[in-house]
Design a protein around this nucleic acid. Sequence first.
DNA 1: AAATTGCATCGTACATCGTACGAGTCAACT
DNA 2: AGTTGACTCGTACGATGTACGATGCAATTT
Lengths: 227, 227
Amino acid sequence: MAAKRSGAQSKRSQRTRSAQELRNEPALSLERIVATAVELLDAEGVDGLTMRRLADRLGSGAMSLYWHVDNKEKVFDLALDSVLEYREPAEMAQSQDWRGEVVHMLEDWRAGMLRHPWSASLLPRRALGPNILRRLELLSKTLSGAGVADADLNVAIWSLWNYVLGATVTRASFDLSDDDMAAAQQRLTRLSEHYPTIERSRLLLDNDWDGAFRKGLDFLLDGLAPK
Amino acid sequence: MAAKRSGAQSKRSQRTRSAQELRNEPALSLERIVATAVELLDAEGVDGLTMRRLADRLGSGAMSLYWHVDNKEKVFDLALDSVLEYREPAEMAQSQDWRGEVVHMLEDWRAGMLRHPWSASLLPRRALGPNILRRLELLSKTLSGAGVADADLNVAIWSLWNYVLGATVTRASFDLSDDDMAAAQQRLTRLSEHYPTIERSRLLLDNDWDGAFRKGLDFLLDGLAPK
DNA sequence: AAATTGCATCGTACATCGTACGAGTCAACT
DNA sequence: AGTTGACTCGTACGATGTACGATGCAATTT
């Protein structure tokens, strides 16, 4: 039976592959597969990622991918987590402005996902990758350091997580092309007699997404702040 | 070229089909297709819904579905909206407890989606169906009636929508089977040295989902309440 | 030097999917 | 009697995920 590559890198493959490496296409690797998957997702969206197309971009055969990856689902998992890569903030521990930090962390999180809109629609179904966990850990630590009691930490984290996830998913799915937007507008005004209040507030049409995100976040933080 | 059925019902099909109707399988109809799709989604999940399987359950050929439905996407759209069907609350207009009403509406919304966990993962990608719009309209009306200024309505609606959507999606995706739960637990404790705060607060493990949902919602409503 | 091992690649094949196309059925209308 | 239009469905096509086994090639052992 064929051996499957586990998490560990092979020791040998570091210095071999000279034939391949000096050629046009560098050899396959998990990193290259994931990076190319992200490219493909950015370019073609979730449905555009197929194992064959991914392999084409890598200059390899489709089945070669399966040496490095269990199945297509894993490609999605890895692509998602890679997009949420978290770079440790330089100074952090001594800051007093916990609220500013939290806002910054969550806005950064959201911005990262909006840079790759497919990631928002993927997130719900995926397990927690290391980068997401790292972000949750830092969020917990910051809140805890700000004085949030352990007993309240769970509620705090979930509220924020839910809000950020929802806001990002919503934003990503309503970030329509101009054509779609025009169609939606037309549809809404056609139906406006049934939804007068929506019409009046111009929901879905005039949206300051970022501002609204920030305001709701502030409300949550008001409630979550230690008294 | 084959005519496609548009939104309107055929006038004739009301009284004909006697041969079919008295038989074991009633004739195909949009309603029956959608209802069966929901059954299938409940039973087998998103990936379990295929046109062939759906047709099997309906006792018809796969291609027959396409008379009633443009494509598979539309089936998803219709199934989702049907799950979010909204039944008008009897008395409502005169109530003074706007906050209780909002909480009730949103908890009902969330409960409806959690009864069909596939719906949460579908929601982000779908257009707004009539039932969702109806719910948004009622929410807007209630907030507006409570004194929320038109200018603030947008932020209010989006904050609540985002929060509810995020909380529902999260809950649905973490509502794991016991096996998955055990695996997740094992995985987390194995990694606990890297995520000490998460470990301490037992995030992901001891969760009072409903309670946390309610608390975060209260925080939002505190912020959104007209002064 | 020769044989063996193990990592890595890939061609072929299969079941399954969404759905295009066109033929078929049957009641209602002219 | 003939036409129409609503509806059903068999067949077929291209695309997909991936199981399986053959192949190549460097490192290691003999």
